[in-house]
């Protein structure tokens, strides 16, 4: 074990976390203006701002570890350099999908940062303590809506079960393991994806069952995997093009 291994493992973890947050924030912001009720435009607007803000802090941490600055990392990397999971890349879809993805992703985020409060990398541990307090409200929002819709009328119950069937396998991509799990664990940087997944399954299953939804039997998680290695869904290319549209095409030398 040396510093190079420690930093490589740490950076791999930070990149996927920041990319997840940035891309999820990007997608979530697309609800501003078209939500089912005005209050939801506002709620998703706040959540999107938190996510993009969180990602900025982590990109800045990466910059301190020798990577390019946050702007360059977001606006100039290629598709295969992004390490977000497939779940966050998918288009916004309908509100059933949006709430289910929100529920799955936010619970994973919360548990991840809960674990990271004990990280041996202190800057990350400090950030995790701060994030936890904010993500708590995202969870509150996701749980409230999931319960309302899963226990609403026949249509909404059916829709939420279908959304669960669709999102559940995709959510497994969050926990795709990195080549550095062993170092992360032994150096006490992070308890690892497997540990995260097991807590996540316990918590989400309990909640989903309490609102009358059934976890699907689907064991084929192949389409959810690859994001952490830089392989993405067909939706990611156009998304990235959109992010870069002004920054790159109008005048790459300019500051905006």
């Amino acid at each position: 074990m040396n510093d190079i291994d420690y930093n490589t493992a740490l950076k791999e973890l930070l990149f996927k976390m920041a990319d997840d947050q940035y891309i999820y924030g990007h997608r979530t912001s697309e609800w501003i203006g078209i939500g089912p009720i005005i209050e939801e435009d506002i709620a998703f607007g706040s959540i999107a701002q938190d996510k993009v803000g969180h990602s900025l802090n982590i990109y800045q941490m990466l910059h301190q570890l020798g990577e390019a600055d946050a702007e360059k990392l977001v606006f100039t990397r290629n598709e295969n350099e992004y390490k977000c999971c497939h779940l966050v890349e998918l288009p916004i879809g309908e509100y059933d999908f949006a709430i289910m993805r929100h529920f799955m992703f936010e619970h994973a985020e919360y548990i991840r940062f809960e674990m990271l409060t004990e990280s041996s990398y202190h800057p990350l541990a400090n950030l995790a303590k701060k994030y936890k307090g904010e993500i708590k409200y995202h969870i509150f929002h996701a749980n409230t809506w999931l319960k309302l819709l899963a226990e609403g009328n026949e249509e909404s119950k059916g829709r939420m079960q279908s959304a669960l069937n669709q999102v559940y396998p995709m959510a497994m991509g969050i926990f795709e393991e990195s080549p550095y799990e062993e170092i992360l664990r032994s150096e006490h940087i992070f308890k690892g994806e497997a540990a995260l997944k097991s807590v996540w399954m316990e918590r989400t299953e309990e909640f989903l069952q309490s609102v009358g939804l059934q976890i699907p039997n689907n064991k084929d998680f192949s389409e959810a995997m690859g994001g952490r290695k830089g392989y993405h869904t067909e939706y990611f290319g156009p998304l990235l093009k959109e992010i870069k549209e002004v920054f790159v095409t109008e005048d790459p030398s300019a500051s905006w």
């Binding site: 912001s29 501003i32 607007g45 701002q49 702007e71 959109e242 549209e245 905006w256």
Partner: peptide, 29 residues
């Protein structure tokens, strides 16, 4: 909120993106 909202995803820096998200959200508020 709509003409500006369509530019949230294309805002050309972190600062602009955060600002325009907050701004368009305010308009809905």
């Amino acid at each position: 909120a709509l003409p500006e909202g369509t530019w949230i995803t294309r805002a050309p820096s972190f600062k602009r993106k955060m600002a325009i998200m907050a701004k368009v959200q305010d308009e809905i508020g």
